[in-house]
Amino acid sequence: MDSSSRTVEIVALLVSPVHAFEGRPADGPAPEPAGTARDHVTVRAGLGLVGDRYFNQAAHRRAAVTVFDAAALDPFGAPDPHLTRRNIVLRGFRIDELAAGRDRPGALFSLDSGDGPVRLQAFRPANPCAWMDVSVGPGAFRGLRGRGGVRCGPLDDGVLRLGPATLTVHR
């Protein structure tokens, strides 16, 4: 199996036990629960991120982990990447290119931040919603179309940490 690797940086990790965006964007988000930003996350194969609201939820097995490219935020003044509410935010790779399309399956890729590789199967795009205009800034809902990240299913147990990492796309 061919593969290609590159160095990336994991700039944000988020595990959220509750959904912060309920109701209408004009009402504003719910207060951020304590402990959502992390310096590391524990990944469980087929289940997701330990402590996250989508962990072990059958309806979200193929979308338990969302990976996002921090460069997509640059046109908005590079706000705090946690505001996107994506689980893993990295810099150095256009992650949206790995999502499944009409004529192709999503890619298999791995991230290794020093504790061994964690394989993720990319499935569908993580399309932005109107809440992005509230959390990231005006125009983010439209500006992040096609750059909202990728919903993935984890294939390995492991740990991911903030900082340098190797992203390998398996072909």
Rank of each mutant, 00 (worst) to 15 (best):
P17Y: 06
G149A: 09
A26V: 14
G48N: 06
Q121H: 09
V118L: 06
V15M: 04
F141P: 09
R94P: 08
P128A: 09
R145V: 13
G114M: 02
G158N: 11
A78P: 08
R145W: 14
D103M: 08
T84C: 06
A37Q: 11
A37K: 14
M132S: 09
V136H: 00
E97V: 11
L14D: 14
A64Y: 08
V89E: 02
V41H: 00
V136G: 01
F68D: 09
D103Y: 12
S110G: 03
T42I: 10
V150S: 15
S4T: 15
A130R: 14
V11W: 06
L144F: 08
T36Y: 06
S5I: 08
G114E: 05
S4V: 15
P117K: 02
D27F: 09
V65I: 11
R24P: 08
G139Q: 04
H60T: 14
G28F: 04
A126H: 09
G106I: 01
I10M: 12
I10F: 05
G149M: 03
F93K: 09
A30Y: 00
V136F: 01
I95P: 15
P81R: 03
R142N: 11
C129W: 01
A58M: 13
Y54A: 04
G116I: 08
P25E: 08
G149N: 02
A30R: 08
P125S: 07
F109Y: 02
D74M: 08
P75M: 01
A37F: 04
E22T: 14
D27S: 10
V11Q: 00
V67T: 12
P105N: 15
F123S: 06
G149Q: 09
G114D: 01
A64S: 13
L108C: 04
V89N: 04
L13K: 03
G48D: 05
H82K: 12
A78Y: 05
Y54T: 10
M132E: 03
S110P: 05
L160E: 14
R171D: 15
A99F: 02
G158C: 09
Y54I: 01
G143C: 06
P25Y: 05
R147S: 13
S113H: 05
Y54H: 03
P79C: 00
C152N: 10
P138Q: 13
G77R: 02
R53H: 07
L73K: 06
D52G: 02
T84M: 10
G106D: 11
D96V: 12
L13G: 08
R142P: 04
V8E: 03
T36N: 07
D115C: 01
D103K: 11
R85T: 10
F109M: 05
H60I: 11
G101E: 10
F21T: 15
T36A: 01
Q57T: 09
G28M: 02
V150Y: 12
R85A: 14
T84D: 10
P125I: 01
A107M: 07
P25N: 02
D112W: 02
A63V: 10
D27Q: 13
G148L: 00
V118M: 07
V89M: 08
D112S: 03
L144H: 12
I10T: 07
F68G: 01
L108V: 08
D39Q: 04
G163S: 09
P25I: 07
H19Q: 12
P128I: 06
G149S: 06
E9M: 14
R145D: 10
T166H: 12
A20L: 14
V15G: 01
G137M: 02
A30L: 12
H170I: 15
V169A: 05
V150G: 13
R62I: 07
